[in-house]
Computed example of a mutant assay.
Amino acid sequence: MLWAMKDAAKTVKGALVAMGAIALSACITSEPARVTFGPKMPIVDAADTSLPIRYDLRIPDRDAAYRTSIFEQLYAGLGREDLTAATSDEYRPASCAPHPSNVSGEQAVLDAIVDAAENARIVIVNESHVVSRHRNFTAELAARLEPLGFTHFAAETFSNPTDGVPPVLESVGLPYPRDVDGHYSSEPAFGRLLRTVKRLGYIPVPYEDNVQRDRSAPVAQQIAWREAFQAQALADALAEAGPDARMLVHVGYSHARETPIGFSDGREDLWMAARLRDLTGIDPLTISQYQCREESGPIRLAGNGPDAPEGAFDFVIAHPVTRFEGQRPTWRAEAGDLRVSVPAPLIPTQGAHVVEARLSGEPEAAVPMDRVLIFPGETVDLLLPAGNYELRAVQAMMD
Rank of each mutant, 00 (worst) to 15 (best):
G105S: 04
Q107E: 11
A108K: 12
V109I: 13
V109P: 06
V109R: 04
D111F: 06
A112T: 12
A112Y: 06
I113E: 12
V114Y: 10
D115G: 10
A117Q: 02
A117P: 03
N119A: 14
N119C: 05
A120H: 09
A120K: 13
R121K: 14
V123K: 01
V123L: 03
V125I: 15
N126Y: 04
N126Q: 09
N126F: 01
H129A: 09
S132N: 15
S132P: 11
R133F: 08
R133I: 02
R135I: 04
N136K: 06
T138C: 14
T138K: 10
E140M: 13
L141Q: 11
L141V: 10
L141P: 11
A142T: 07
A142W: 04
A142G: 08
A143F: 04
E146S: 12
L148Q: 13
G149L: 02
G149P: 00
F150T: 09
F150R: 08
T151D: 07
H152I: 08
H152V: 09
H152M: 15
F153M: 02
A155G: 09
E156F: 01
E156Q: 12
S159Y: 04
S159T: 14
T162L: 14
D163E: 15
G164M: 14
G164S: 10
P167F: 01
V168H: 09
V168S: 10
L169A: 03
E170P: 06
S171E: 13
V172I: 00
V172R: 03
G173S: 12
L174T: 01
Y176L: 10
Y176V: 12
P177G: 07
P177Y: 04
R178C: 13
R178P: 02
D179N: 12
D179P: 00
G182F: 02
G182T: 04
H183E: 05
S186N: 09
E187R: 07
P188L: 00
P188H: 01
F190S: 04
G191Y: 01
L193M: 04
L194Y: 00
L194H: 01
L194S: 02
L194T: 08
